[in-house]
Simulated scan of single mutants.
Amino acid sequence: MAASLSLHHIVIDAHDLPGLARFWSAVLGWPVLSEREREVVVGPDLASPLGLCFMPVPDGERKSLKNRLHFDLSPGPGATPEEREAEIERVLALGARRVDVGQTGEESWTVLADPEGNEFCVVRPKRDLVS
């Protein structure tokens, strides 16, 4: 039988671990499950197969390029365009900001950055992983 791996944590390097963890906790509606000096974990619950883990980035190291990996967040399959915009405004009020990574203005997503500059997108409502 072939080995099988599954995602456990998506690790995000951070300067302010608790602050960035609280931001993502509020964005996703997930609780902070564990908070230690060098690791903060956020997830749906302790038994969830996947969570976010915030780890310290070396002092002085700053993000300078577009992310090679980012989150696409969906407002849910039945969301209206107005509900999607309301979610974008909610996330902006939590500390996100709009960013330009070369969009044309015709995209079906909005690019934002978290308080430490990590880009993510709020996409149109999705029914499944590919549509």
Rank of each mutant, 00 (worst) to 15 (best):
L7F: 12
W109R: 01
L5W: 12
P49S: 00
P115R: 01
W24A: 05
E107F: 09
G51A: 10
V41K: 09
G19I: 03
D45K: 09
K126N: 12
M55P: 03
A14Q: 04
S64K: 15
K63D: 01
R36E: 13
V11C: 12
R97V: 13
P115E: 04
E83L: 08
A86K: 11
E82N: 12
L69N: 11
V122N: 03
E61I: 13
G43W: 01
E35A: 13
A86S: 07
V122Y: 00
L33S: 06
F120R: 02
L17K: 00
L129C: 02
V130Q: 09
F120G: 01
W109D: 07
R62A: 13
A21L: 07
C121V: 01
G102P: 04
L20Y: 06
E82S: 15
G51Q: 10
L33F: 01
R36Q: 12
R127G: 00
A96D: 00
E37C: 05
P125S: 05
L65K: 14
G105L: 04
D59K: 11
R98L: 11
A96M: 02
V41L: 06
V42C: 02
A26L: 14
G78H: 13
L65T: 15
L28H: 10
L28D: 08
E39M: 13
I88R: 07
G95Q: 00
P77W: 12
S64T: 15
K66M: 13
A26W: 08
M55I: 15
L50V: 11
G29L: 05
A93N: 06
L33T: 08
E37W: 04
F71Q: 01
E106W: 14
G102L: 08
E119V: 10
G29T: 05
L20H: 01
T104C: 06
S74Q: 10
K126R: 14
G78A: 12
N118Q: 06
E106P: 07
K126F: 06
V42F: 04
E39L: 14
L7C: 11
G95F: 00
L5A: 14
T104H: 05
R124E: 14
L17E: 00
D16Y: 03
V101A: 11
V41E: 04
N67L: 15
V123E: 02
D45H: 15
D45E: 13
G105Q: 07
W24E: 07
V123R: 09
A79Y: 05
N67R: 15
V99F: 03
V11S: 11
E82H: 14
T80F: 04
D114H: 05
E85V: 11
K63G: 03
R124P: 04
V32E: 02
H9L: 12
P31H: 00
L92G: 13
G95S: 06
L33H: 05
A14N: 02
H8F: 12
H15M: 07
R38Y: 05
P75I: 09
V91Y: 00
G76W: 04
S131V: 10
